[in-house]
């Protein structure tokens, strides 16, 4: 994680955001950035696998509602990012 941009803060937890985290509109800290990218990669995979294609919003909503017995199925940082993105929209 090189190139710390000190003035930018992660909109989710206020931590220092990393340059690599710049994705059009949002800066995220390293952890939320990682989660965000997993989400984006996941979107393509979901639509490759499902019969009925999902829109980005439907996908986010579906992931957020997924639960297993221990509620550990969806990563905490992934949930943070989804909540942030849905709120923004």
């Amino acid at each position: 994680m090189k190139g710390i941009k000190l003035k930018e803060k992660c909109p989710i937890d206020g931590k220092i955001a990393f340059l690599e985290g710049k994705d059009n509109t949002y800066f995220f800290c390293a952890y939320h950035y990682f989660a965000y990218h997993n989400l984006k990669d996941g979107y393509h995979l979901w639509n490759e696998k499902l019969e009925k294609k999902l829109s980005w919003e439907e996908y986010l909503d579906t992931i957020l509602k997924l639960k297993d017995k221990s509620d550990n199925l969806v990563g905490e940082w992934v949930k943070d990012v989804i909540s942030f993105l849905l709120k923004k929209q």
């Binding site: 995979l45 979901w46 940082w77």
Partner: peptide, 12 residues
């Protein structure tokens, strides 16, 4: 922890 907290479930 990184793997757990940034896990996105993929269906199969």
């Amino acid at each position: 922890e990184i793997k757990i907290k940034s896990h996105v479930p993929i269906p199969f």
